[in-house]
Design a protein around this nucleic acid. Structure first.
Lengths: 208, 208
DNA sequence: CAACTACATGACAATGTGTCAATTAAATTG
DNA sequence: CAATTTAATTGACACATTGTCATGTAGTTG
């Protein structure tokens, strides 16, 4: 028991070391500009060792995305005890997501970017899918609460609406490079776009 | 004149051959799964030759995206002579964009994906930026027409709104992989999501 | 036809990936 | 505690891909 347990703990520490090293590099230089060699050097081990703990670079990024999901989950959970109506909760959660982006940009990118990987490609990706779903449900549940308390119109689909809100947020948060181009071109700030997006959503889901 | 002109024509044909070859491969296998070697083989020339006509793989993709922009521009221009109100035009343009995706998925991806490249990275990217802007303006102008004819509320920002609509469309059209995951998970079809997105936009911009 | 020009080629250096045989370290056992 | 087994780590290897560039070639010109 104790021996196997200690072994397991040591493996976890080593795993954490790799994630920490990768995170540092990914957040400062960007995922695409970091090689597995760079990560190995930063973590002070041979490149081959990384593959003993992770399937590949994407798999490491997925592990970082799981951390991201946890941080976002904690931020979301701070909204819950405030006793807000459905529509107020939607406003608060949108704002929280925007704050998550502002304060944890690196994690935000990991959370978003990992979406491009195949969900069946690794154990981490499977796990990420689960934590993602929990955060998604916080929002769609808030919409349902709005149905119940009469602050949100009942003729909208909670899942579709949550998805639309998510896409708007990603749009705001410099994820889509073409958006950045248009923003520069028309001198639109990120805060302005966030504000417009939020008002647009609220206007179209609130009960008259 | 004639000699230089013929030379120029030949260069253009060769250029077109490369784009055609690349397009065929990109559309069937996906951009990331095609190497410059593959393109060279398909175009029946040496790999080095490709670099005489294009800066790199992204540059070829940008050329394909310019074709995409032209197709979209033509589809948009068919909406113009219909004498629609501002809000009706927004509905029609949204639908057209969705049709563009459905009928020209490969071009749609090129149009979208090329957004990730730096706009100062090549002449093609500069050119792409211009044609992109024209299409963007068709939509934002329609919003302004809605201001004038009283079908769209005046307190919204045309640029921000166009950007939001664009992000919604991209969300619908399977561009964001995470979205696909949620759609599968909650059994939401693409047509349903398109419908929800469109209604959401119209509801929030129409004048009461 | 000799000299020039522009174009096309493929070998090359660089950079990156994932694997695996060999090595090293750690744990177990008599 | 020495011998033996087991597990972890390493870095060299094979392979893929990129962009460049010296070399070759074909067409053009005086």
């Amino acid at each position: 028991m104790t021996k196997a347990y200690r072994k397991e703990k040591e493996r976890e520490i080593r795993r954490k070391d790799i994630i920490d090293a990768a995170e540092k590099l990914f957040f400062s230089r960007g995922f695409d500009n970091v090689s597995m060699n760079d990560v190995a050097k930063q973590a002070e081990m041979a490149r081959g060792t990384l593959y003993l703990y992770f399937k590949n670079k994407n798999d490491i990024y997925a592990a970082i995305a799981i951390r991201a999901a946890k941080i976002l989950g904690e931020m979301f959970s701070e909204v819950q005890p405030q006793n807000l109506t459905g529509i107020e909760k939607i406003r608060a959660l949108s704002f929280t997501y925007y704050q998550f982006y502002k304060k944890h940009t690196g994690y935000y990118h990991a959370y978003y970017h990992s979406g491009v990987f195949d969900y069946k490609s690794s154990h981490n990706m499977e796990k990420l899918k689960e934590v993602r779903k929990i955060n998604f449900q916080v929002v769609s549940d808030a919409i349902k609460e709005g149905f119940a308390d009469g602050t949100i119109r009942e003729d909208i689909d909670p899942v579709a609406t949550t998805l639309i809100m998510l896409s708007m947020s990603n749009n705001v948060n410099n994820i889509i490079p073409a958006t950045q181009m248009y923003m520069d071109e028309y001198e639109l700030t990120q805060d302005e776009l966030f504000e417009s997006s939020l008002e647009m959503v609220l206007r179209s889901i609130e009960k008259q």
